[in-house]
């Protein structure tokens, strides 16, 4: 059951990324490029995604997940070096090619070999992050 709903959620995510145009690297780079021919699409995608998500967070109050367990606790509002350094590195890669993790997976069936190369490099980066995390403590 958990796997079925994970698949449904993943399919909605991948389908939403596809129809929103967020797997088009030109649209993502166009949004980041405020000094070029600015493309506002990403802001509408983010805005649209916030609406059901905000309702969902509100709905979690005093309830439990439908399939049991507990909702994720709110993390402590601690801004560590890893959060800032990691986000800056991520942003650099995001700007350089116009792909982030979700869209890089959603576009694998139609994006061509460049997307496979990106995902392979991203997986290598995720492995490289394991020792780096220990060197850069959360506080």
């Amino acid at each position: 059951m958990r796997n079925l709903f994970a698949f449904i959620s993943g399919a909605l995510f991948g389908g939403g990324l596809f129809i929103s145009g967020m797997t088009d690297t030109a649209k993502v780079q166009g949004w980041l490029d405020v000094f070029g021919d600015w493309d506002p699409t990403l802001a509408f995608v983010m805005g649209g995604a916030m609406i059901p998500m905000a309702i969902a967070w509100w709905f979690t109050q005093g309830r439990k997940p439908a399939l049991g367990g507990d909702f994720p606790e709110r993390p402590e509002p601690r801004i560590g070096r890893n959060l800032v350094v990691g986000s800056v590195l991520f942003g650099m890669g995001w700007g350089l090619v116009g792909l982030c993790p979700g869209p890089s997976l959603a576009s694998l069936t139609y994006g061509g070999p460049g997307h496979w190369l990106f995902v392979a490099a991203m997986i290598a980066g995720m492995l490289a992050a394991v020792p780096l995390r220990r060197m850069l403590p959360a506080t």
Partner: peptide, 17 residues
């Protein structure tokens, strides 16, 4: 597309937690 992405997140949160 954004609404669909948000719905995906809502399902994963409310059903799978």
């Amino acid at each position: 597309g954004g609404l669909v992405i948000g719905t995906a997140g809502a399902v994963y949160l409310l059903v799978n937690g």
